[in-house]
Nucleic acid binder design. Structure first.
Lengths: 81, 81
DNA sequence: CACCATTTGTTCGTATGTATG
DNA sequence: GCATACATACGAACAAATGGT
């Protein structure tokens, strides 16, 4: 993914929007790329990637499982397993 | 304030709870201590203090104004000025 | 059982940007 | 221009959970 530092939107907002699109388009169905994978894809730092994901978690779109990964939350599933 | 590293709660959770109490008790009425003041009071880093405040912002309890400070949101006031 | 690789979660210190006065 | 204060980002470290060897 390309992050544009010149954009009016902050990188973490851009990445969140990008992931939102990849999810709603069906490109990502269950398991999201790991944090480290996303840092490499984007060139962003881990903290910034984490922050973008935090937005999706707040939106109830994604759930995370320590040691496992980050998953697209299924419809009608509790936010926290 | 005292942050207990041995506590089960994370420091940012402890601080958020502490500020919530100081607000609901009426000890803090409008202007909160600045981020730097809170870092000194608590011994936490700026990022961690910011994170605790972010919780209160999400709860609609606090609003921030760059260059001004952080304020207790009045009832019936929009979250973002 | 122990060990280890992977992954998420938190924190730190610092730097830079932006808004206010 | 300058000082204050919030906002974002970076890189690094450490912990905890999971799953496989």
């Amino acid at each position: 993914m390309k992050i544009d530092p010149e954009s009016a939107d902050y990188p973490y907002v851009q990445l969140a929007a990008h992931l939102r699109r990849r999810i709603s388009s069906g490109e990502i169905t269950s398991l999201l790329p790991s944090l480290t994978a996303l840092t490499q894809e984007t060139g962003l730092s881990m903290g910034t990637v984490r922050r973008a994901v935090a937005l999706l978690i707040d939106e109830g779109l994604v759930v995370t499982v320590p040691g496992r990964g980050m998953f697209v939350r299924e419809r009608g599933t509790p936010r926290q397993s």
